[in-house]
Computed example of a mutant assay.
Amino acid sequence: MDKPQRIDIKSLTFEALVDFLSAFGKEKFRARQIIRWIYGRGVTSFAEMTDLSKDLREQLAEKAYISDWTPEVTETSSDGTKKYLFRLADGQTVESVRIPMENDRSTVCISTQVGCAMQCAFCLTGTFGLSRNLETAEIVNQVCAVAKDGPVNNIVLMGMGEPLHNLDNVVDALKILYLDDGMGFGTRKVTLSTCGLVPEMLELAKRIPVNLAVSLNATTDEVRDRLMPVNRRYPLKELMAACRAYPLKPHQRITFEYILIRGVNDSLDDAKRLVKLLHGIKAKVNLIPFNEHAGSDFKAPMPAEIEAFQTYLLDRNIVAIRRASKGQDISAACGQLKGRLDDKA
């Protein structure tokens, strides 16, 4: 008879860990102790958990393990941005990025799927297709691994994959990352980006608090259909209605990501339509110049177009931030490192 497989403790939310420990007749506070050891102190074996009895440590080691990631490849940019490629147990690879901010702060951008099924025309990851969803522990482990290089202040789920296409595992991962006894990220420190899966957006709001970013990138259905096939299922009118219905706390805004592509969506007419689309929504806009890559005919916008677009929004009291490009010298755009290394394989 096959021996039962051990469970990865990092796949368990607090509630699931309490249930797991109850099988050993252990109290709820033991779950908090274990969480502190794993996420607060970074231990990778139960033997190190000295405030647990020897018997419990042995029981845990028999039934469970603590996964621990080390990147297969790390690239460091001249601006301090670090790109990590992780090899998964089944041989697949995913990327994460550590982005330096002001005052020695940092943001980590993590992936939620191997590849992506959304097939956005401007996105390199979409050309890989979808291999599979990441498991809860695989999402959490990206943050744990990057945190070995120093404190992480913010998390953005904007890497490979569509987070809401992997909703259950993403919600469980957020529950783990939010744990006060663990890594203790406040909900204001985590942002989830979606291409606009409308039913899942509303389901997300019911299940867990998180800052929402919507990848918009066009102001007409015609252009968005071409750039983002998801728009054929959930067109702009339906998407913007869902954004208006999304519950926000007083301090919150929905972030709209707008990748500026030369001659496609960067005109003043587009800026005018964007203002109308955002009417009645507590919004801020991240303007992102397209990051040119091999295999795409799209071009980065001209500086004058970027400035004119941003100025038009600002003059109409819309918060519009031009996102500075980071890691230009290390394949930092999502999927570039994976694509380059997969080509060599």
Score class of each variant (00 low, 15 high):
K3Y: 03
V156W: 03
V223P: 00
E292F: 07
L313G: 14
C116I: 05
Y246S: 05
L56S: 00
L204R: 10
V319N: 13
V198W: 13
Y234R: 00
L236W: 02
T81I: 15
G280Y: 10
L248F: 00
L248E: 01
K276A: 14
T311Y: 10
I35Y: 05
C120A: 10
C334W: 00
N169K: 12
K82I: 01
K148I: 14
Q310D: 10
I35W: 08
E238F: 04
N286P: 11
R207G: 02
P151D: 09
I254M: 01
T70D: 13
K148L: 14
G182H: 09
A47M: 09
R98N: 02
S53L: 14
E238T: 09
L248T: 01
Y234W: 05
L177N: 10
P163Q: 04
I208A: 07
Y84Q: 05
Y84R: 05
A308G: 09
V152L: 00
A147W: 02
S111Y: 12
L88G: 04
T136F: 12
K63F: 04
A213F: 04
M201I: 12
P247K: 01
L274Y: 11
R340W: 06
Q119H: 12
D266E: 06
N154V: 07
Q142P: 02
P209R: 11
Y246C: 06
Y39T: 00
V146W: 03
G25P: 00
Q336R: 04
H251P: 01
A64T: 01
N265Q: 08
A308C: 07
A16H: 04
T13V: 07
L164G: 03
Q59C: 15
S77A: 15
G186N: 07
R340S: 13
E48D: 15
